[in-house]
Design a protein around this nucleic acid. Structure first.
Lengths: 231, 231
DNA sequence: TGAGTTTTTAAGGATTTTTTAAGAAAATTA
DNA sequence: TAATTTTCTTAAAAAATCCTTAAAAACTCA
């Protein structure tokens, strides 16, 4: 399982540090960002299970950050922290897609329970992550951990990290649709025009590697994603 | 879609009635139970989308009721209402599996947003791969997710998004009327002269794909819609 | 019959995908 | 640290796919 990764975005250094330590003490793996901009950068560079966002922050407030986070990940739970008990804030929070809301000062134990409850909820839903790393694809043998692709009587093709992750994701969904969006959000951590182009480049590379077995194909499903088929 | 069914369990008759009317006004289908026992009976006799439970109640309190509800349904969202701001209560609520928590007096609009947020969350979860995507149509096998149509000994015909959605809708209504208006509002998102022409173009395409099995036909019902028949 | 509805083909424009190539960034090696 | 290699992104043009619109012919129903 491993400890859950939480992104904490809080500009008050005292409060933020205390909260970070408190949560770390309870076996959560906390990344503490000092403002919204830093928070967004951390979010894009990591794979978090939960976000805790202060609402009032310099440079980029919690709502704006949440909106950016939601634009690349519609699933990740978000908890807002706020000093004011303003109705508009609460409503805005829920509109952005908050999973919960806490008014400062709050009881830290309550926060802990909320975190636990929310993570449990998500747990039961999404257990699609695969830790398999050995795949048979037509005549090929693919090891995603060692990042190599081989076949009897052929060279051992080494794959780059991105090549390997993409092929793994295709292999996990073998003969089924691998949505473009899934690969972009999970591997490229962002779903936009450029990452999408980049992904296409990698699909082309993989096709080249797999070319020598004409039973194996990576088909495109226009507007949806790709499909690794084995005839 | 239909309006969402909510179970409201609240022993205070004044507050309960007002809340019921308020929620009913916002297009929710409310069942109001006066205490925990009655609430449990209602729960077992109906199919609710959400529960709103008062904590302090005679005969059977909200936590006990929630535990009973959870024992038969681990998915249904539960919101607790409480007069006291007692930490123990909040913790207990989350332990039982609360989705949210509101202290009385609360702003009704906030409750409305919480309900909306929670139901949306469930919506997006359950809609992941809820509905069918594999159909048999005469000699054909149709997969609407992979957007292809195949039959033994024949090529694999790829379908465009619109072709696939339309054929799926016909297949769902197989041997029955698929109203023209339904396809236009659901697939084309607009019902006017041009979308209707466009739909006819797609019906023609589907007929071409299905031509090789003369047992399969798409019939027009003048002024009504179409019917996919399998003789 | 004649007005409205359906069927079909085809052209165009918009969007998405594919591919090659160049250069920036990161990692590795000397 | 500098040089080299590998990895990844960006750019851009060509190809493929998708959808709408148009228009003419066929059909249906009153």
């Amino acid at each position: 399982m491993g400890s859950k990764k939480i992104l904490l975005v809080e500009d008050d250094p005292n409060f933020g540090t205390v909260l970070k330590d408190y949560l770390a003490l309870h076996d959560y793996n906390i990344t503490h960002a000092k403002d919204g901009i830093e928070g967004l950068i951390e979010f894009k560079n990591n794979d978090f299970d939960l976000c805790i966002l202060d609402v009032m922050m310099p440079r980029k407030d919690g709502f704006s950050l949440a909106a950016d986070i939601r634009s690349t990940n519609k699933e990740i739970p978000i908890i807002f922290l706020t000093a004011k008990t303003m109705k508009e804030d609460v409503l805005k929070g829920y509109q952005v897609g908050a999973d919960d809301y806490l008014n400062k000062p709050f009881d830290s134990e309550v926060l802990l329970f909320k975190i636990k409850a929310i993570l449990q909820r998500k747990e039961s839903d999404s257990n699609k992550e695969s830790d398999e790393f050995e795949f048979n694809i037509g005549k090929f043998f693919f090891n995603s951990k060692l990042r190599h692709l081989s076949f009897d009587g052929g060279e051992n093709q080494k794959l780059s990290p991105k090549e390997s992750k993409l092929l793994k994701m295709l292999a996990v969904h073998k003969n089924d649709l691998m949505p473009r969006e899934l690969a972009l959000t999970k591997i490229w951590r962002d779903d936009n025009y450029f990452t999408s182009r980049s992904m296409d480049v990698y699909i082309a590379k993989l096709r080249k590697y797999l070319k020598s077995d004409e039973k194996v194909e990576i088909l495109n499903i226009h507007g949806e994603g790709f499909r690794l088929v084995e005839n």
